[in-house]
Design a protein around this nucleic acid. Structure first.
Lengths: 239, 239
DNA sequence: CCCTCTAGGATTGTCGACAATTTGCGTCCC
DNA sequence: GGGACGCAAATTGTCGACAATCCTAGAGGG
């Protein structure tokens, strides 16, 4: 209490994060960016050696990722990075559509629309920067950040929690099918229009644009499917 | 291959579930039903002794529940059952509204509406039975089963995954505030109308009814809040 | 030549013990 | 008597080793 407030802002224990959390985050990033391609088997012993920790904390990290849906565990067989099938692309975007629609609604009605819009515009600026530097990875990251910010702005703990995995999976989709075939200006434009509708408090437009945004993405990543159908086609196959 | 197909249906390894999964499920049920009240501290050593397992698998189970949001972990302090604040009730139902709306949409458009409706009617029958036996616990369970069935019927892995925790939290709400103050007939009636709208393929009615259903529940459990507002009031406080 | 059975290797699942950290209480000094 | 310091108990975090289980490769028999 002898310390004057304002100094040493946010002093925190030297190790704020648990070891397992650190490992989980690193693996998450590796999966997200494609450093660990889908289907890869993760050996506990090998990873424990690489991270310089025993198998205990590592197992905890793995379990965490399993329950998040990023890893698939086969008993007595091993852990594998999930591989996204065409149907999953549909499923991910359908779920995202539900979550982000709700987040948008809360942002629209919860007040502070301008503040939220400002935050979002910041991420769009990042997108523009990444686009001008021709860095597709950074572009995708900024894109995701936009949606993450939107959901955070909803103020709903549970929407945020549920969206975390979805956004990672989205990133996996974008990494796997890196050819987005979309002009960057168009991509930025969609987000900008979304912000404008939010700023205006125009619910119908905002929700419609959001839906269209998702629909666009699905049709780009998994041609032939549409969110408007109730179910994804069983398996497009390898035709 | 010597066994004729059709016999011994679904023979499975003696231990199909991992130890941690069994423990997690048991704790989940205990939390759900209120046997472990919110705020309870769970000591690893004590639980390990009770379950007759070492702390390893038990820790895994705990971690699982933490990442599901049912337990709150404080580093070097212990694990506690989450306690739901008034704002959480709002948050839970807002999230449920988003998920179930999406599920309903997929059920409506995905075909097999009649089959789904039949499944749902089965759970409503369970509700009626529980009501006639004046068993509020069973009534809540059947109620949850209705919504679980609806979400399962959507066929979306991710909607199902996200809903799991939400439904458990809902059960916690119902247990904590057991006085529902709602006539059982009314409760059954709401679900029945929902099914009818689904059967008819009447999207507008179904979605509206669903929204109203959630709104009703929120106003009953957390009076003074409404899903129509963007944010829950910061904290109703103890006025 | 194909199928079956068996032995080996490798991986996960489980356990008990040790180390690190936090909290609460008792003591000491002012 | 009040406050700060320090010790001790309890709890979690971590580790290495052992046991159980599963896949694979190879030999043997039909």
């Amino acid at each position: 209490m002898a310390l004057p407030p304002g100094m040493l802002p946010e002093i925190e224990p030297v190790s704020r994060e648990s070891t397992a959390a650190v490992i989980a985050r690193q693996l998450r990033d590796a999966i997200m960016t494609g450093a660990l391609p889908p289907g890869t088997q993760l050996g506990e012993t090998e990873l424990a050696a690489r991270f310089q920790v025993s198998r205990g904390p590592l197992r905890e990290a793995m379990q965490h990722l399993v329950s998040e849906g990023l890893l698939r565990s086969e008993r007595h067989r091993g852990l594998f990075v999930i591989d996204l099938e065409p149907g999953d692309v549909y499923d991910i975007y359908a779920a995202r559509s539900a979550i982000e629609r709700a987040a948008m609604l809360r942002a629209l009605r919860g007040g502070d629309r301008d503040r939220i819009a400002d935050l979002l515009e910041q991420t769009v600026a990042e997108m523009a920067t990444a686009a001008s530097e021709d860095d597709p990875g950074a572009l995708s990251t900024a894109d995701l950040k936009f949606h993450e910010a939107l959901i955070n702005a909803s103020g709903s703990k549970r929407l945020v929690r549920m969206a975390r995995t979805l956004l990672i999976e989205t990133r996996m989709c974008l990494t796997a099918l890196q050819s987005t075939y979309q002009r960057v200006e168009e991509r930025v434009e969609e987000h900008t229009k979304l912000i404008q509708a939010l700023r205006d408090g125009d619910e119908d437009t905002a929700l419609t644009l959001l839906e269209a945004h998702m629909e666009d993405a699905v049709q780009r990543l998994a041609p032939g499917t549409s969110l408007k159908d109730g179910h994804a086609p069983p398996v497009p196959g390898n035709a």
